[in-house]
Design a protein around this nucleic acid. Structure first.
Length: 571
RNA sequence: UGGGAGGUCGUCUAACGGUAAGACUGCAGACUCUGGAUCUGCGUAUCGGGGUUCGAAUCCCUGCCUCCCAGCCA
């Protein structure tokens, strides 16, 4: 926090330290970059950001913020065939939503196309790059294999003059896509395949989302990334493990060019159980119609998570606590859920909602009478106050809260048994009405007027408190319950010939209509979050319209009874 | 059978030659007008084999296992 004493722990540590933070602290101590900490988050605008990106965003912005540094947002948009403005918009929105600010430092690799081109010419003139006429297929063959060295291209020793001329003509659009490339002249025998004369530029007559048709040659990521970091004077260039092999190449470019040398540090990408974090596969889910879009609440995208009802605070806490290391592991999805529950428990107002209604008639309650019961808005937050909930003779309770033949340890309503209606009265079940299939369609009860508000003057106890909604006052709603999108911890693991879609969970979405909400919920607007008592956290969906309320279940509450019952089944 | 990076409770992360710690999960209990929350307690780990050392998760040797790399993707 205090730049003059960078080794002092942060005033509000959001999580444990990690090896990258330790490196930054050490660099500050040795004054490696003149006390500067400058990071960047460099997405490619070819898809929506997901929870794995959130880890990187939090790391980069968090580190800079902690040590008084800066973080740039830079789009690595070097491949016009995959990138779109829609994606840059969504990325901007998501980073902002997460709570980070790049201030005036929004950059694009495409801003640097001119400089990159000049540097390419510089390398050609230094005899360090050449125009190659080999086809993609031939380049692959010449590259060799993991265990065998590659062979030099027959075009490798063209004169500087010819290379300059050819490269200029590539840029001028004289050659068709794929006919030539610009390659770095390094070492076809290198044990690191990235150093076997990597392609620097390819010909692509494609419309770029920002530069339009100004260019028909585009730099490869490897030729753009390191220099972009360099131009932005990035001190700590943090990326994921798979780029470790590329570091020697980035170093080579920067050294040949004689420009500022950022320090690249690789960390492990986030993996989550029952979750896919691959933009390619997420795109496939969207395009294949397996989900309703990038922001489907089952998606691990930030837009999906947001629509699901997660808070940025919960995501940040999660990211601060998953740890940053170099081991490839897989974090349990339950940890993410833990952080939403932890956050929402503190801030979500409570309300009563009945998802699967079962009518209850209080036979001894005066017909036509309505009472306003006082309910606490949030037991975790006294300042949230109370509200009035209407009570009347006919109510709805949750089907699960009644059992005609209660199993052991079931404490809820059943014939002859007394329970408390939350914030209202004790009721005792006196009988049921069934339909032709023998299913209970209505429960009859009597109430004890002396227990108004929920306490018995005679001190008698009930073993259970259940939620309810007055039938006459209820607001109808649709709720969408979500389960894991995949049935396998590692959805990428598939049997012979199958792809990951075979691991899709057919029950990942359950839509409930005819749900009954307490009237205060009629005021909910999309994005509003509540805890439906005893059920879970719910968030009003943008699909809501006047008269049609839709809620997403963000996360269920911990359900001890379900656990007991499940265990009972196994015995 | 090349190169790079890794292997610590079920999961993730710490311990930087000196009592293997924390979080999540699990189990047990307390409390409770949410079978929620909260609180208390319990459990399980240094990949294997050698070595150095008074002392090794940590250093050395060796074996095993996992991940990444043969795009004109990023």
């Amino acid at each position: 926090m205090n730049p003059s004493n960078p080794t002092a722990p942060a005033e509000t540590p959001t999580g444990p330290s990690n090896f990258i933070r330790d490196i930054v602290i050490e660099d500050l101590k040795t004054n490696k970059y003149g006390g500067r900490v400058h990071t960047r988050f460099p997405p490619e605008p070819n898809g929506y950001l997901h929870i794995g990106h959130a880890k990187s965003i939090c790391l980069n912005f968090g580190l800079a913020a902690e040590f008084g540094g800066k973080t740039n947002l830079r789009f690595d948009d070097t491949n016009p065939s995959k990138e779109e403005t829609e994606y840059v918009e969504s990325i901007l929105t998501d980073v902002r939503w997460l709570g980070f600010d790049w201030e005036d430092r929004l950059f694009y690799a495409s801003d640097y196309f001119g400089q990159l081109y000049a540097w390419a010419v510089q390398l050609i003139k230094a005899g360090k790059a050449y125009v190659d006429d080999l086809t993609a297929d031939e380049i692959r063959q010449y590259r060799g294999t993991l265990t065998e060295p590659g062979r030099e291209s027959p075009y490798r020793n063209r004169s500087v003059e010819e290379n300059v001329d050819l490269f200029e003509r590539m840029r001028a659009g004289e050659f068709p896509d794929g006919s030539r490339t610009l390659r770095a002249k390094i070492d076809m025998a290198s044990r690191n395949l990235n150093m076997r004369d990597p392609v620097m530029y390819r010909i692509l007559h494609a419309e770029h989302h920002r530069t339009g048709d100004a260019w028909c040659i585009y730099p490869m990521y490897d030729f753009a990334h390191g220099q972009s970091d360099s131009m932005e004077r990035i001190t700590h260039s943090i990326c994921t493990l798979e780029f470790e092999d590329h570091r020697p190449l980035y170093n080579w470019y920067v050294e040949q060019l004689g420009i500022f040398h950022p320090q690249q540090i690789e960390f492990d990408r986030l993996n989550l159980t029952y979750t896919l974090l691959s933009k390619r596969k997420l795109l496939q889910l969207v395009e294949g119609g397996y989900v309703r879009g990038w922001d489907d609440p089952r998606m691990p995208t930030l837009s999906g998570i947001r629509r699901r009802g997660y808070t940025p605070e919960a995501v940040r806490n999660f990211c601060a606590n998953v740890g940053v290391s170099k081991t490839n592991g897989i974090v349990e999805l339950g940890l993410l859920e833990h952080y939403v529950r932890e956050d929402l428990n503190k801030r979500a107002p409570r309300a009563m909602a009945v998802l699967r209604p079962l009518p209850v008639v209080i036979d001894n309650y005066p017909e036509g009478q309505v009472e306003e019961m006082e309910a606490v808005n949030n037991p975790e937050d006294a300042a949230a106050g109370t509200r009035a909930v209407p009570f009347s003779r006919v109510l709805y309770i949750e089907q699960e809260d009644f059992r005609e033949d209660p199993p052991k340890q079931y404490f809820r309503l059943s014939p002859g048994r007394e329970v408390r209606l939350r914030y209202a009265y004790f009721i005792k079940c006196t009988g049921v009405v069934k339909n032709g299939n023998g299913e209970v369609t209505e429960v009859h009860c009597t109430y004890d007027p002396a227990t108004r508000g929920g306490n018995a003057p005679d001190g008698r106890k009930v073993k259970s408190t259940i939620h309810w909604v007055s039938a006459a006052h209820a607001v109808d709603a649709e709720t969408r319950l979500y389960d894991y999108l995949f049935t396998k911890e590692n959805p990428g693991e598939t049997g012979g010939g199958q792809d990951f879609t075979s691991n899709l969970n057919p029950h990942s979405l359950e839509i409930l209509t005819g749900c009954k909400l307490e009237p205060s919920l009629a005021a909910a607007t999309p994005g509003d979050r509540y805890q439906f008592e005893r059920l879970g956290y719910f968030c009003a969906d943008p699909d809501s319209a006047p008269g049609k309320t839709v809620f997403n279940r963000t996360a269920a509450l911990r359900d001890t009874w379900a656990k007991i019952e499940r265990r009972g089944d196994r015995r």
